[in-house]
């Protein structure tokens, strides 16, 4: 069973408690022992009130951590091979690897999960027992190596293979032309996708002369 998130249920509504700050801040890539010491010696009421610059910084850092985790949960596209290895690519700058792996482990507890972090150029894995490991090897190599030691399972063979084509077909079939709302659609595209390396305004750099609107399906 997945561990409960370190963020309490209503933390977003009422702000983070000092305890939550001290637990989660070390996961931020720019967190230092000095910063933690400073948080420890500051009263909770000051930290919770966004009036001071320090509190704003701390809260912003915490939001960055959880936002990144949530985005990766939502937009990581995975593949499953016939030997029960689930793999995909992620972009994590903070230390959220364990949390993300646990999320996938919770959904696919009988699969070996391999995720390649494009930001840190490393592959993180979690086996069926929930054991977490890190490798400085490419994703293909790891998947190949792990798959060798695992038998072909008919159960996975049934649902494996590249399903991107199926999803594209399904996705395009769901659009209702009379309800087209380009402004809302563009609002719903995650900023993460817009700000990805090599992208400008949601469009790849090599197509920089084109705007995103060109690629949104139009009815008129």
């Amino acid at each position: 069973m997945i561990e409960k998130s370190k963020k309490t249920k209503n933390s977003r509504l009422f702000g983070f408690s000092k305890e939550e700050m001290l637990i989660n801040l070390p996961r931020h890539s720019q967190c230092s022992p000095n910063l933690l010491f400073k948080v420890q010696n500051t009263s909770e009421s000051i930290l919770k009130n966004n009036g001071s610059q320090f509190a704003r910084k701390i809260n912003q850092m915490l939001h960055e951590i959880f936002r990144e985790l949530e985005r990766n949960r939502q937009f990581t596209r995975t593949n499953l091979n016939n030997r029960g290895v689930l793999y995909g690519k992620i972009t994590l700058s903070h230390q959220n690897e364990n949390e993300l792996l646990k999320f996938f482990h919770d959904r696919f507890p009988n699969c070996f999960i391999c995720l390649y972090n494009t930001f840190k150029n490393e592959t993180i894995t979690m086996n069926e027992q929930g054991r977490f490991q890190k490798f400085q090897v490419s994703l293909d190599e790891i998947v190949k190596k792990i798959s060798l030691n695992r038998p072909i399972t008919p159960y996975f063979e049934d649902i494996s293979m590249n399903n991107e084509e199926i999803f594209q077909e399904f996705y395009s079939s769901q659009f209702i032309a009379s309800r087209e709302n380009r402004k809302y659609f563009k609002k719903m595209i995650p900023k993460y996708a817009m700000e990805m390396p090599g992208m400008k305004g949601g469009v790849e750099n090599r197509f920089r002369n084109n705007l995103l609107d060109k690629y949104i399906k139009t009815t008129k």
Partner: peptide, 16 residues
């Protein structure tokens, strides 16, 4: 239990 995440939006803004 851990559901509630949206993945993709159609051009009409609806979540698929």
């Amino acid at each position: 239990i851990s559901a509630g995440v949206c993945h993709s939006y159609a051009p009409d803004g609806r979540c698929v």
